[in-house]
Write a protein that binds this DNA or RNA. Structure first.
Length: 487
RNA sequence: GGCGCCUUCGUCAAGCGGUUAAGACACCGCCCUUUCACGGCGGGUUCAUGGGUUCGAAUCCCAUAGGCGUCACCA
């Protein structure tokens, strides 16, 4: 590919940035970055006046930046093909729509939405393709006058050529062919003068010299409409690549029911952008070797549209968790602590300002639990362990363990030994357990379990000596006393 | 319903006419360990079904089934 690669991501700002959109953006970005002269363009398709919002646009841009997907041209940064908001390009669409009308390739349609809906319904009933039947295709001047006098505002419809085969190439699916009779005359400009998606994309992609259009598979059926427009307008058709959808666990399209769907949600849950990017890249694309973990630079190097899968992919949160954990291992404990702090503040475990010594203890605690964490918010699963001294033993087996006849002597000796050490740290606490097993001649479990349960309320958890260290002698004794008041 | 896309372990997937059908996540077992987690080792009737083509098919062709998308004055 010696020509310049120009790709774009063109979201409509109608909601939080979806994970599927993020993958589309990533694939485009990866392709642009793979070639030294590649350009990644960000265009905002805000022609849906009802649903578009500035807030959504900001969310999308913030998410892209967080993921590290920077754009060379587009909104905010500008470029020679601007403007990059479709609502600022209305004149352009108007000009091309007029051109099509003048050439007889498009016409005004005075049908109302109700009439169209009724027509479609009737066709569906007859098992026919629900396409526009061409009522306004050849209106006389009189008819037009009549409609105008009724106050009808026309849309502009494209006069789709009949009995033709519409063809285009798709990097993922191969050569595609559609019957133009299945396309029908579709609206290109709404009654309010705003262009419809299929019309605006074509003009924008053509005028912005986009060479490759990588987008979700849901656009595949729309592509013939766009191809006939490219032809009518005399534009060069770009190379398409329709990547498959991302599905939820039940194989339906990802939605709120499946948990977090927006990039922002993953960010807030404490996932790392590198991990999310890595995961998204592996959804629908497979490397040539057996590598699983890719830095962004490695991804750019390894990525290729040749190995993009055709079939839809189920979003597997388990794998994301694993990947994220791999990336978290590389982080300093301090960093992981900082990831947890917002959650701790939100849940009321912490209050601002956080004192330096409190912070230091928190970091030490994080060091003890960090191996148990797949993402930041999971810290909350361990927060009670550290912050909540009101230990409650709920589990039946745990209660049972505390009734063992050796418990009183074990706990007694444990307290005695704990009192006896000079340096209150895990290194000095750890040997105590061994000493007790020896002196009392009981098994390790008989020692560890009563202590663990009375100190944490749980049978399982992170390193016990470490927990005891961060809690400090007083809190440990306090907890034991609450659980075993008799001792 | 028409049109279109898709179909290899539970999930992501390698595979492009001849392989013991990779690998990863998850799961199960074992080891490590006071426990859990981490880590290590090991395990699993995976080519939707039915027809072809071929000496030979997960790979090519055709049907069927299922899943999904799309048929908007949404993108």
């Amino acid at each position: 590919m010696s020509e310049q690669i120009r790709v774009r991501f063109a979201p409509s700002p109608t909601g939080p940035f979806h994970i599927g959109g993020a993958r589309s953006a990533l694939f485009n970005w990866l392709l642009a970055r793979k070639y030294s002269n590649g350009k990644f363009v960000l265009r905002v398709e805000d022609t849906d006046r009802v649903r578009s919002s500035k807030e959504s646009e900001e969310n999308i841009k913030a998410s892209l930046k967080w993921l590290g997907l920077d754009w060379d041209e587009g909104v905010d940064v500008g470029g020679e093909y601007g403007p990059y908001h479709q609502m600022e390009r209305l004149e352009l669409y108007k000009k091309y729509a007029q051109q099509l009308v003048d050439e007889g390739k498009a016409y005004y349609c005075y049908c109302t939405e109700e009439e169209i809906a009724a027509e479609r319904e009737a066709l569906m009933k007859e098992n026919k393709m629900p396409i526009y039947q061409g009522h306004c295709r050849h209106l006389t001047a009189d008819q037009i006058e009549k409609y105008k006098s009724e106050g009808r505002k026309p849309t502009i419809r494209f006069r789709t050529p009949e009995n033709e085969t519409v063809e285009f190439d798709d990097m993922v699916r191969g050569h595609m062919q559609f019957d133009s009779n299945g396309v029908g005359d579709f609206v290109i400009v709404k009654a309010d003068g705003i262009p419809v998606y299929n019309f605006a994309v074509v003009i924008d992609d053509a005028l912005m010299n986009i060479t490759h259009v990588i987008r979700a598979e849901e656009h595949l059926s729309n592509t013939p409409r766009q191809v006939v427009l490219y032809d009518a307008l005399g534009f060069t058709v770009p190379v398409f690549a329709h990547i498959s959808l991302i599905l939820g666990k039940d194989h339906s399209k990802m939605s709120k029911r499946h948990g977090a769907t927006s990039v922002e949600q993953y960010k807030n849950l404490g996932y790392l952008p590198e991990a999310l990017v890595n995961f998204l890249a592996l959804l629908g694309w497979a490397p040539q070797d057996e590598k699983e973990i890719f830095s962004i630079d490695e991804l750019i190097k390894a990525f290729s549209m040749d190995h993009v899968a055709k079939n839809p992919a189920v979003f597997d949160i388990d794998k994301l968790n694993w990947l994220n954990a791999q990336y978290m291992k590389k982080l300093s404990t301090k960093k992981i602590t900082m990831m947890a702090v917002p959650h701790l503040l939100e849940k009321g475990y912490l209050n601002e300002p956080i004192a330096a010594d409190e912070m230091a203890k928190l970091v030490r605690f994080t060091e003890i639990i960090r191996d148990h964490l797949s993402y930041g918010a999971q810290f909350l699963d361990f927060a009670d362990l550290y912050f909540n001294d009101d230990i409650v033993v709920e589990d039946a087996e745990s209660k049972q363990i505390l009734t063992d006849e050796t418990v009183p002597s074990v706990i007694g000796l444990f307290k005695e030994k704990l009192n006896g050490i000079a340096d209150f740290d895990a290194e000095h606490i750890q040997p105590i357990f061994k000493q007790i097993t020896k002196e009392l001649k009981v098994g390790g479990k008989k020692v560890y379990m009563p202590v663990r349960i009375s100190v944490t309320g749980q049978m399982h958890g992170p390193d016990l000596a470490g927990i005891i260290e961060v809690l400090g002698r007083e809190r440990v004794f306090d907890r034991i006393e609450k659980v075993l008041p008799a001792l």
